Amino acid sequence: MTDTTPTAQLSAAGVSIWLDDLSRERINTGGLQSLIAEKNVVGVTTNPTIFAAALAKGEAYDEQVRQLAASGASVDEAIFEITTDDVANASDIFHDIYERTNGVDGRVSIEVEPGLAHDAKATVETAKKLAEKIGKPNVLIKIPATVEGVEAIADTIAAGISVNVTLIFSLQRYREVINAYLTGLERAKEAGIDLAGIQSVASFFVSRVDTEIDKRLTAIGTDEALALKSKAGIANARLAYQVYEESFATERAKALVAAGANEQRPLWASTGVKDPSLPDTLYVTELVAPNTVNTMPEKTLDATFDHGVITGDTVTGSYAESNEVLDKLAALGVDYDDVTATLEREGVEKFNVSWGELVETVTNALEGAKSQAAAK
């Protein structure tokens, strides 16, 4: 690995590269270690879709499924055991990076069950249960930024648990997320919890914003509308970085940092392009800024490593231009609040569908194992 590769340049520019994927096969074969060594990967994010896909292929989970079936584990218990085992093992792989970066990177994320997205109390209980089960200092518990999720974020941070806030689409919701983080830190400080041990990232989704807005621009169909396609996602994310800069420059935030707290870094999620006509590294090269995370599907990571052109900070200084994009969209009748509310609702629905697929996959695996055992 040299500092001339695009991923090394991206890292040098202050962007932490996290892989948006995890499987037991990737852990067992050394594939994850290779990405760390060769492509500057310093963390991993997971979600129900990723686990459903991992379980649906290969034989890496067969032995554990047989054991769970023999013990009479329920489907929910089996999912809990399987997913937390993968995250714990990945956390061990990243532990050296966690130590070397003083806890900033080397992080592995696991999501609370998406069916709890509108139940703050159950979300907090599940977050605590996941953190305790995994028992690794470098785990992040993913909580969606629904209205109820924002409440749960404050409570989870207050308990000293590190959080990856997911499914953020709007700038206003992002401000609420930062406020929840700071509130949680203040409560943790009052409780005597060491703030230095609490980390958080705020996952701001990018490509899905373009997908939804571009659909509306295509429906409008004018030259002016079509000229704005594929610009909203980057503009929205760049303005999120402005919110981050402003929020952590306040006296409130600076007082917490002085007491040992960490800033909540912006994380760019949904960074694989959905439109094949776009450059496959668009949501990487156009969102380079210090103290950020970009969580990439492997296809995007490979593209970035192969031909990404990293030109330094492409975010700060772009705020007037980014606001102009959103202003032009509003003038055309594209309702920003409706777009972001739609995306949040659909995001929760998609995770619920994936959770259902995960439940079905594990149910079938358990039943198959029981049948095999009975046939012997």
Rank of each mutant, 00 (worst) to 15 (best):
M1L: 15
D3T: 14
T4K: 14
L10P: 04
I17A: 10
L19N: 14
S23M: 06
R24G: 00
R24P: 01
I27T: 01
I27S: 03
N28S: 14
K39N: 10
T46L: 03
P48V: 08
F51E: 00
A60R: 03
Q67G: 02
L68H: 03
A70H: 04
G72M: 02
A73M: 00
S74T: 11
A78R: 02
I79D: 00
T83W: 00
D85Y: 07
D85H: 05
D85I: 05
V87E: 00
H95K: 10
H95Y: 15
D96F: 09
Y98F: 15
Y98D: 10
G106W: 05
V108Q: 03
I110V: 09
E111M: 14
P114H: 08
A127V: 14
K129R: 14
K129C: 03
A131P: 06
E132Q: 13
K133Y: 04
G135H: 00
N138S: 07
L140M: 15
I141N: 11
I141E: 06
I143F: 07
I143L: 07
T146A: 07
V147H: 12
V147A: 13
E148T: 01
G149S: 08
I153R: 11
D155F: 10
I157T: 02
G160I: 07
N164S: 12
L167A: 04
F169V: 05
F169T: 02
E176K: 12
Y181T: 09
L185A: 07
L185Q: 00
E186N: 00
E186G: 02
A191N: 10
G192R: 07
I193M: 02
D194F: 10
L195P: 04
L195C: 09
G197A: 12
S200I: 15
F205H: 06
F205M: 11
E212P: 15
L217G: 04
T218V: 13
T218P: 05
I220T: 14
I220G: 12
G221E: 14
A232G: 13
I234G: 01
A235V: 10
N236H: 05
R238G: 11
Y241K: 13
Y241C: 11
Y244V: 11
E245N: 13
T250Q: 09
K254M: 14
L256H: 02
L256D: 02
A259Q: 06
Q264G: 07
R265K: 11
V273W: 07
K274M: 10
D275R: 07
D275W: 06
L278Y: 08
D280P: 06
L282P: 04
V284M: 03
E286Q: 09
A289L: 05
P297A: 03
A303V: 02
T304D: 05
D306H: 13
G308W: 01
I310A: 00
T311G: 08
V315F: 05
T316G: 13
G317K: 07
Y319R: 15
Y319A: 12
A320M: 09
E324S: 13
K328A: 06
A331I: 04
D337W: 05
D338W: 11
T340I: 04
R345W: 15
R345Y: 14
V348A: 01
E349T: 12
K350W: 11
F351P: 02
N352D: 11
N352Y: 08
W355Y: 14
W355I: 04
W355C: 07
G356I: 00
E360C: 06
E360Q: 14
T361D: 01
N364Q: 15
N364V: 11
E367H: 08
G368V: 01
K376W: 12
